[in-house]
Simulated scan of single mutants.
Amino acid sequence: MSKICTICARGGSKGVPNKNIKSLAGKPLISYSIDQAKQSKMFDYIAVSSDSKEILELSNDAGADFLIQRPEELASDTSAKLPVIRHCVLEVERQLNTTFDIVVDLDATSPLRLSIDIINALKLIEPDEVTNVITGMRSRRSPYFNLVEINDEGYAVISKTLPGAIYRRQDAPKCYDMNASIYVWRRDILLNERNNSVFNPTTVLYEMPEERSVDIDSLLDWRIVEMLMAERLRGPFQ
């Protein structure tokens, strides 16, 4: 099956200014996702979509096959991600006069993933009934045990109840935090514009460890990733 990897990176960022081109352990953040896609050896092509000339230039230097200029209407703070990925895929297909079977999107703000994560996530879409794959880690909070909501009367209540009481988090059903690292789709599912959710009846999850699941959305996230990356370069997470 033919596979394309997309990496979508806007120029603007409020939490960490210019984060996609900011240097992390000696190279731009955007380069990590490109390198991981190349190292996986799973893709026919790697395409980067951005509204930033500098991001596209750095992506070219890192070895991306296609540099897709994102249209202005898909580059605002409120732009949804799925239309951006669709635009990127369709533009590459137009240029190549072909279509792909599988689309994998790597979030540029998740540099701690390994190429083996990409390989293993792709394995999960091999069964015909699986429409797409998301990634996540085991949640520290459980809606059955220690995740609460405020009800209409203003009182704190557990988010999700079961017929029997849960007294230990270990006894609650397993829950996961999406880590926004890897998304895998069959092309027809991704390009169905009536479907604007990553959740489908046969979506499966690839579990990643916490130390590879930090998504950079704030300066604190950046500092955590810097620390973990420094430790990785010394060897413990390899």
Rank of each mutant, 00 (worst) to 15 (best):
A9D: 01
K14L: 08
V16L: 03
P17A: 00
I21E: 03
A25T: 03
G26I: 03
I30E: 06
Y32Q: 13
Y32D: 12
I34A: 08
M42N: 11
D44E: 12
A47S: 09
E54V: 04
E57N: 09
S59H: 08
S59K: 06
N60M: 02
L67A: 06
R70L: 12
L74G: 05
S76C: 09
H87N: 09
Q95T: 01
V103P: 03
L106T: 07
I119L: 13
I119H: 14
A121P: 08
E126Y: 12
E126F: 11
P127Y: 12
P127G: 10
T131N: 08
T131R: 04
N132M: 07
G136A: 09
G136F: 10
M137E: 15
R141T: 08
P143S: 05
F145M: 06
F145G: 03
L147F: 12
D152K: 15
A156N: 07
S159E: 01
K160R: 10
L162Q: 06
P163T: 04
R168A: 10
R168N: 12
R169Q: 08
A180S: 13
S181L: 11
S181P: 06
Y183R: 08
L190K: 04
N192I: 04
R194F: 10
N200L: 09
T202R: 14
L205A: 12
P209I: 01
P209Y: 02
V214H: 14
D217N: 08
D217E: 11
D221S: 11
W222S: 02
L233G: 02
P236T: 13
Q238P: 01
Q238K: 05
